[in-house]
C-alpha cells in the first residue's frame, strides 16, 4: 500500500501547517502562484528539504526522518535534471546501475520504461541532443524505471511550448491510469491542474486553501483566493451591497458576491447600467470589461454580439450563479 499522508507539516521555506493525504493510485495536482510553497511541499515529501514540525507518512511508514534515497520516491524536476555526461539509456538506468542491479534486468527495465513514454529511439543519444519534449520524456522514463511508491513531478511541463503541453498532459494522465501509483504533480497552470488531477490542492502562502475534485474547485471555490486564482479571466468579486447582484438576493453586510464572466447577463431590463471600457476578442468569444457605478465587471459574450467601447449596457446576474463569501475571512459562506 502506498499513498502519502502529511500531518501538520511545517518547513523553513514557506510551508506552514500542511495536512493532506493522497490515496494509492491517486493523482493529486498542487496548484498555486509562484512562491506559494508548492515546490517546497514536493521537496519535503521527497526528503530534499527538512521538516521542522509535523510528520510525513508514505505507504503507512513514517518517513519524516528518512533520507530521500530510502523513501522509494522518484521525482521529475522542472529542469529534468538529466545527467549531461550520460546517454539517455544510462540516464534512465542510473538508479539501477548504482544499486548494482544485474545488467540484463537493467536493459529489460530501461527498454520497458522507454517504451512506455515513447522514447525508445533516443536511447543512444546524449541529453544535449534532445529537444525539450524529448528530455521531459526521458526524465519521466527515469522516474518510472525504479517502480517507486510515489511519483513527484515538479512543473514538468513549464519548459514546453503550449502545443506540446496539451499533448504531454494527456500522456501523463494516460500513463498514470496505466501504471497507477501515487502521483503528486505541482503546477502553476490551472488548466493543467484541473485537467490532470483526480484531486487538486490549491496552495497560497505555504498553506492549502482548498483541496477537492477539479469540479469542486471550479464550482465551489472555498475562498475568494481560489475563486479568483482558478478561472480566466478572474471571477468578478463585488461587495454584497454593490451595484450588481441578483434581484432575489438580499445579502448581509460584510458579504462579497462572486460570479464568473460567463454568468453575467447583459441587456436585461431592470438591471443597473454599465459602461463598456474595454473589449478583448479571444476567437469566438470576447470579454467585455464594464464599469458599473465605478465597480469593474467582466462579462463573456459571443464575438458576433460584442458591444462597442463606451456603450451603455444593463448588467445583471442570476442567483444560482453567485458565490457568496465573507469579506472578513475570505471564506465561502
Amino acid at each position: 500500500m502506498a499513498g502519502i499522508t502529511l500531518t501538520d507539516v511545517h518547513a523553513a521555506h514557506g510551508v506552514n501547517g500542511v495536512s493532506l493525504s493522497v490515496g494509492e493510485d491517486e493523482l493529486l495536482t498542487v496548484l498555486g502562484p509562484s512562491g506559494a510553497g508548492k515546490t517546497t511541499l514536493l521537496r519535503l515529501i521527497a526528503g530534499l528539504a527538512p521538516v521542522t514540525r509535523g510528520t510525513i507518512h508514505i505507504g503507512g511508514r513514517d518517513v519524516t526522518a528518512l533520507r530521500p534515497g530510502l523513501r522509494n520516491v522518484s521525482m521529475v524536476f522542472q529542469s529534468y535534471a538529466l545527467f549531461p555526461h550520460l546517454s539517455v539509456a544510462d540516464n534512465i538506468a542510473f538508479g539501477l546501475i548504482v544499486k548494482d542491479v544485474p545488467r540484463a534486468v537493467i536493459r529489460e527495465r530501461v527498454a520497458a520504461a522507454a517504451a512506455s513514454v515513447g522514447c525508445e529511439q533516443l536511447l543512444a543519444r546524449k541529453p544535449s541532443q534532445l529537444s525539450g519534449g524529448e528530455r521531459q520524456r526521458v526524465a519521466l522514463a527515469r522516474a518510472l524505471v525504479r517502480e517507486p511508491d510515489v511519483f513527484l513531478l515538479d512543473e514538468p511541463m513549464s519548459n514546453l511550448d503550449i502545443e506540446l503541453r496539451v499533448e504531454t498532459r494527456a500522456e501523463i494522465k494516460a500513463l498514470h491510469q496505466r501504471a497507477g501509483g501515487t502521483m503528486v504533480h505541482v503546477t502553476h497552470d490551472q488548466t493543467e491542474a484541473l485537467v490532470l488531477g483526480d484531486r487538486v490542492a490549491v496552495m497560497r502562502d505555504g498553506a492549502i486553501e482548498q483541496i477537492g475534485s477539479p469540479e469542486e474547485i471550479w464550482r465551489q471555490p472555498a475562498t475568494t483566493f481560489v475563486a479568483r486564482f482558478v478561472g480566466s479571466p478572474a471571477m468578478n468579486l463585488l461587495p454584497g451591497d454593490g451595484p450588481v447582484r441578483p434581484r432575489d438576493l438580499f445579502p448581509e453586510p460584510g458579504w462579497l458576491i462572486g460570479f464568473r464572466a460567463e454568468a453575467v447577463l447583459l441587456g436585461h431590463t431592470g438591471d443597473p447600467l454599465g459602461t463598456v471600457t474595454r473589449v478583448d476578442v479571444v476567437g469566438e468569444d470576447s470579454y467585455v470589461y464594464l464599469s458599473v457605478s465605478g465597480s469593474p465587471v467582466v462579462a463573456r459574450v459571443r464575438t458576433s454580439e460584442k458591444p462597442r467601447i463606451g456603450a451603455a449596457i444593463r448588467v445583471g446576474v442570476r442567483r444560482e450563479d453567485v458565490h457568496l463569501f465573507d469579506a472578513a475571512t475570505g471564506r465561502r459562506t
Partner: peptide
C-alpha cells in the same frame, strides 16, 4: 545545477558516489 545533486539524493547516492559519478 542543484537539481542534479537532488536527483542523486533521490537515487540514494552517497556524497562520494555523487562526486565521482
Amino acid at each position: 545545477p542543484q537539481d542534479l545533486y537532488d536527483a542523486c539524493l533521490i537515487e540514494d547516492l552517497s556524497p562520494a558516489q555523487t562526486w565521482w559519478r
